[in-house]
């Protein structure tokens, strides 16, 4: 694959991820995007669904990227919680493929459901078939959705669909919807923990 093809494919993949998230949002709603990178998701959501909101990001270059993209961003460390954000001040809090890069998993999930009515979470499923095969062959997996070598990864938490759902149960978080996709972007219904490479969740508080 040439660099161009790789980039084109990554972009296509990204658009696909964005579309999954966009589908769960109502037009015109207000969102908070945690670990928003350069703000491209928010920009997409604004352009396609008239969604407004803020990104939260710690990385300096990403904050600059947000500003260039015309996206409102607040530079702070999510690991310390969302102090300052008011309860239920957003329709959705989103964390798109960033939860696995943070240490305080429980706090972040709890905080997301404090500041927003619902949370949208996506993450790479460590138990995906190809990842299991890599481990079985004696190596840490490198795949479409886990594209980093072990010595150069931003990921600090490695978990599976089953693990995540166990945690949600423990935190009394209600799973309102789940979607899983394989590396080719096909939706998976049969044994998602084995066949799903990337998982998306729509979460709420058990009332």
């Amino acid at each position: 694959m040439t660099e161009y093809e790789r980039r084109a494919r990554a972009e296509q993949r990204e658009r696909f991820d964005f579309a999954v998230i966009a589908n769960w949002l109502s037009p015109g709603e207000r969102v908070l995007d945690l670990g928003c990178g350069d703000g491209r998701l928010l920009r997409y959501l604004n352009e396609t669904r008239d969604v407004t909101g803020y990104g939260v990001e710690i990385d300096h270059e990403s904050v600059l990227g947000c500003i260039r993209n015309g996206v409102d961003v607040i530079q702070m460390d999510i690991e310390c919680g969302l102090l300052g954000f008011e309860d239920r001040s957003f329709d959705h809090a989103i964390i798109s493929q960033a939860l696995q890069t943070m240490h305080t998993t429980e706090r972040i999930l709890t905080e997301m459901l404090r500041v927003a009515a619902e949370a949208v979470v996506s993450f790479p499923n460590f138990a995906y078939r190809a990842n299991r095969a890599a481990i079985a062959a004696g190596h840490m997996p490198v795949s479409e959705d886990l594209p980093y070598d072990w010595f150069d990864t931003p990921n600090v938490r490695f978990f599976t669909i089953v693990d995540f759902e166990d945690l949600c149960a423990r935190l009394e978080i209600e799973i309102r919807e789940r979607l899983a996709f394989d590396e080719a972007g096909r939706e998976v219904s049969d044994d998602p923990n084995l066949n799903g490479s990337l998982a998306f969740y729509r979460l709420g508080r058990k009332s």
Binding site: C66, I74, Q75, E86
Partner: peptide, 12 residues
């Protein structure tokens, strides 16, 4: 934020 105003905040 409380007033839903648009803001960019950078901590340099």
């Amino acid at each position: 934020l409380h007033n839903r105003l648009r803001v960019v905040y950078a901590e340099i």
